[in-house]
């Protein structure tokens, strides 16, 4: 992505589960009383239930991140093998589905150093002599139809994905940042997928689009038990919007993937953008409910 998602400066990083429990227990009181609708009777019992639910949410989301990071390691290995073997057509075929595992957990990459720009940086956003990662290879495959000279780039990509996997296995998360990460993933859709800028050579933007939505949904699903108590109406609204989002995307499925972005009409993109906005707007209410 062209930019970091939120959770900068290590906000997403390393918060012990104890801290999360503490934060959750405190949320009925001091700093944020109106944001937790669950704060009707701030009994120890409720707080502890909320705390457990949040701890479970964090565990569930962390497990999701680990699974996707592992899958990305595998899919990247397969993609890189094809590139290194000079199999242009095969590499092009694998490319969009190899990337979805990254797109699902992008906020994690964004929160740690240069992993996001290194793996997913786009031309122009990075000085030409530093540009590597998936999109550099995308350009070589689609524009030049060649894999010549890409060995250092593919080796670097494998390293960077390995680092992301290490981060996924090492770091712990905070509930509000999981919620914010979901909103940010949809921000990514609005900023670069809906305009076709992300996959400007391959036009496989809709693969990324769906993966971002899925990643946002994973964060929401993990937090749902807590949210159900805090604001069941909001949960119902968000679920309705996710459903509408997938319904809309279904119209563009072809085989295992999607139609290419450059076949979409302005009416199509506007409809998609509108639904992303509707979904993201409702999701943006979540961070304050789990903080």
């Amino acid at each position: 992505m062209n930019a970091t998602i939120s959770n900068r400066g290590g906000r997403l990083a390393t918060l012990a589960v104890g801290t999360i429990l503490f934060a959750a227990a405190g949320c009925g009181g001091s700093d944020d009383d109106e944001s937790t609708a669950a704060s009707e009777p701030t009994t120890a019992e409720t707080a502890s239930t909320d705390g457990e639910a949040l701890a479970a949410a964090v565990d569930e989301y962390a497990a999701y991140v680990r699974r996707e990071a592992a899958a990305l390691t595998d899919s990247t290995a397969e993609f890189v093998a094809a590139v290194d073997a000079g199999e242009v057509e095969r590499a092009k075929e694998i490319y969009p589905s190899a990337r979805v595992h990254f797109e699902r957990i992008e906020p994690v990459a964004s929160a740690f150093g240069d992993l996001d720009p290194d793996i997913d940086g786009r031309a122009g956003d990075i000085p030409p002599d530093e540009w590597g990662g998936y999109h550099r290879i995308e350009k070589a495959l689609w524009v030049h139809g060649s894999t010549k000279g890409l060995e250092p780039i593919t080796a670097e990509l494998v390293d960077d994905v390995g680092n992301l996997d290490a981060v996924a296995n090492r770091e712990e998360f905070e509930a509000p940042d999981i919620a914010q990460g979901s909103v940010d993933l949809l921000g990514e859709v609005s900023a670069s997928k809906i305009t076709g800028e992300e996959e400007r050579y391959s036009h496989t933007d809709l693969w990324d689009f769906e993966a971002n939505v899925q990643g946002a949904e994973a964060g929401f699903d993990a937090l749902k038990p807590t949210l159900e108590r805090a604001d069941p109406k909001l949960v119902a609204e968000i679920e309705k919007q996710f459903e509408a989002m997938y319904d809309l995307l279904d119209g563009y499925r072809r085989g295992d993937g999607f139609v290419l972005y450059d076949t979409l009409t302005p009416k199509d993109t506007r409809e998609l953008a509108r639904q992303v906005d509707a979904l993201a707007e409702s999701l943006s209410r979540v961070p304050s409910l789990v903080g």
């Binding site: 939120s6 914010q180 909103v183 921000g187 609005s190 943006s284």
Partner: peptide, 16 residues
Amino acid sequence: MLIEVWDRATLSDQEL
């Protein structure tokens, strides 16, 4: 400006 995206960023995120 990607106004819609900015508008749903939290206050804290906007300030950071």
